[in-house]
Amino acid sequence: MIDFTEEQLERYSRHILLDDVGVEGQEKLLQAKVLIVGAGGLGSPAALYLAAAGVGTIGIVDSDVVEISNLQRQIAHFSKDIHFAKVESAAEKMKAINPDITVKTHRECLRAENISGIIKDYDFIIDGTDNFPTKFLVNDACVFLGIPFSHGGILRFNGQTMTVIPYRTACYRCSFRNPPPPDAVPSCAQAGVLGAVAGMLGTIQAAETLKYITGVGELLTNSLLTFDAKTMIFRKIKLNRQANCPVCGTDPQITELVDTEKTVCGLS
């Protein structure tokens, strides 16, 4: 049992007031370790909210530096941060919001050979990456290690997210199988994205993380939440774990992590 200081009781009072969270829930948050993959459009709001919420240890992975075109939506980064490492920029804001927490920066690309070592000590992972090879790599590594995670994607005015509890609920590959061919993929860099859509989705991922840690409510498992900010229609599509899933199915074809082409680095 943590002895909360006066300052902590005040800082987290609006959580503690919630019947479902309380002192016990806040204690779980302070003891939790969450890794955010990507300090961009989704990772920024997620990182700030998790820091503010008092998630005790937050890791953040990204190899990039801040560019001016990021600032339209990647709200952890300010104009003064241009050319600086995104992980350092994000960590600075997180510590400024809440000096109570530990931020671990991983300024590197996730690849088949380093991902397990980076993610293994975390309780929950937020996927805020910008490319499909890394999304599938995060899925597979989390499934192999049994680490729950939140998938997130955005494009133009749309967002989608699902929470995965490996071997218990549908994983990303259960529904999406394989990365689409690279030439078919419009990225945010090519197709554009409404800045606030990144905030909406990253914030939903942060809420799922807090729910998972505190055990409150029902997670977005076995369902894909999609929304269209043009109409503000939100849909929750039912998903099932698939027995023939190549990674979490009964006879998996994927049994080790491999890099598909263009994994992570230098995609802009």
Binding site: G38, A39, G40, G41, L42, G43, D62, D64, N70, D127, G128, T129, D130, N131, F132, K135, G152, G153, I154, L155, N158, G159, Q160, S175, F176, P180, V185, S187, C188, A189, V193, A198, L224, T226, I237, L267, S268
Partner: peptide
């Protein structure tokens, strides 16, 4: 179900 990347860049 549409493939949606995005996020970081």
């Amino acid at each position: 179900l549409y493939f949606m990347g995005g996020g970081s860049q």
